[in-house]
């Protein structure tokens, strides 16, 4: 396959696009892993989404250093 005199431009286009897509995929996958880990940590400390707010869970929560960005 001969890409001609402008092969550098063609290959650079595909290489940069691939890098941007891979960065996007990595962001989505790593974000999901982090969120699932945080949810698991919270659940293991007794924090639930429903039901009354409980102080013990909050006390344990303060030890959770993991932060998820909005």
């Amino acid at each position: 396959m001969d890409l001609g005199p402008y092969s550098g431009f063609i290959l650079a286009s595909y290489a940069i696009s691939t890098l941007i897509v891979l960065a996007l995929v990595a962001w989505v996958v790593l974000d999901r892993r982090q969120l699932e880990r945080t949810l698991h940590d919270l659940a293991s400390k007794g924090v639930t989404r429903r039901g009354p707010a409980t102080a013990p869970a909050a006390a344990k929560l303060s030890s959770t250093a993991t932060d998820t960005q909005e």
Binding site: R49, P52, A58, T68
Partner: peptide, 15 residues
């Protein structure tokens, strides 16, 4: 992410 936020808010409110 919103579930994490809701759980943290609830725990903080309880505290």
């Amino acid at each position: 992410r919103r579930r994490v936020r809701a759980m943290r808010l609830k725990a903080a409110a309880g505290s």
